[in-house]
């Protein structure tokens, strides 16, 4: 489908690809924040995940090993953060920033011997029958497996958060850790779990970049996407569905800017570069304009350390 040289199908197909690292990292950040922990270390966890996954793939030649190692590495980074903020009750903002700075340096150091190694990307998976549907087929059903997996993870996170008892406990810990504690739940333990799962997802998001798109490792590969993921969670008013929508919107508009430039549309490239940020903020703010709901969605204990009493 083409309008004046602009191919909507390739654009939308690329949108899913560009949104995927943000979806994964954003969902991870969502889990942590929903239990009341703000982890600004996403960028660092993504980088360490990206480089660890890349190294594992180069060494074992197995993509699955690469993704698994990236999740472990992300979780390991997150456990450092959880130790500082949950066990030692250090300031979450400062610890998160430190984690990012640490991750930037560590990933550069780890990746040095592997920098510039050329690897094969992940092949696209054509889902039988469905991928033959005109228009929708190429957009939705000719993606790489990680795109499908990230959507499945998103669905799982939504289901878990709003339709399971464990999800209810997770939300309770974020809203009122004291009540959760009084009911006999281990607040710190639950926060550890959420932060570690978040780290694993951030690591996977990083590995999506080093193993799938653009499948290479160079220092600083993530280039700020961790920060975008953190911002997405806030602008999506802590709703996982909106985090995903925001991530795809951001990816799609970034690519749209390139499409328009390539077609010679006379809009300054600087304006097109800032468009994803503006559009994502505007759309998510409009979606979350109900202030009462916004207040209800924001975890009440966010950034507050928990002291068990009684």
């Amino acid at each position: 489908m083409e309008i004046a040289g602009f191919n909507i199908v390739t654009w939308l197909a690329a949108t899913l690809v560009m949104g995927t690292p943000l979806v994964l990292a954003g969902l991870g950040e969502f889990l942590a924040e929903k239990t009341g922990v703000l982890n600004l270390g996403t960028e660092g966890m993504m980088l360490v995940g990206a480089v660890s996954g890349f190294i594992a793939f180069v060494e074992t030649d197995s993509q699955i090993a690469g993704f698994a190692v990236s999740m472990l590495a992300g979780a390991a980074m997150a456990s450092l953060f959880a130790l500082l903020t949950q066990t030692f009750r250090a300031n979450q903002v400062a610890s998160g920033l430190a984690l990012t700075i640490f991750g930037v340096g560590l990933s550069a150091f780890m990746g040095r011997p592997y920098e510039g190694e050329g690897i094969q990307g992940l092949a696209k998976l054509h889902i039988p029958l469905l991928s033959d549907i005109p228009v929708l087929g190429p957009i939705l059903f000719q993606q790489d497996p990680m795109v499908y997996l990230s959507i499945a993870i998103g669905a799982a996170v939504i289901y878990f958060t709003y339709h399971t008892r464990a999800g209810l406990v997770m939300r309770a810990v974020g809203e009122s850790p004291e009540s959760a504690h009084a009911m006999g739940y281990r607040v710190i333990g639950i926060r550890y779990l959420a932060v570690l799962s978040g780290g694993a997802l951030a690591g996977l998001g990083g590995a999506y970049m080093s193993l799938v798109e653009p499948h290479l490792w160079v220092e600083g590969l993530v280039a700020g996407r961790g920060w975008i993921a953190v911002a997405l969670v806030v602008f999506a008013s802590w709703r996982p569905g909106r985090v995903m929508a925001g991530a795809y919107l951001f990816g799609g508009i970034t690519r749209l800017g390139f499409e328009l430039q390539g077609l010679g549309v006379p809009i300054p490239s600087q304006a097109l570069s800032s468009l994803p940020y503006i559009a994502t903020i505007v759309v998510l703010v409009i979606l979350s304009r109900d202030r009462t709901k916004l207040r209800l969605n924001r975890p009440a204990s966010l950034t507050k350390p928990f002291f068990a009493t009684g």
């Binding site: 690329a14 560009m18 690292p21 970049m209 798109e213 653009p214 290479l216 160079v218 600083g220 590969l221 280039a223 996407r225 970034t254 690519r255 390139f258």
Partner: peptide, 8 residues
């Protein structure tokens, strides 16, 4: 320096 953007 943003390899993902350069590729896209």
């Amino acid at each position: 320096y943003d390899p993902a953007k350069a590729r896209q």
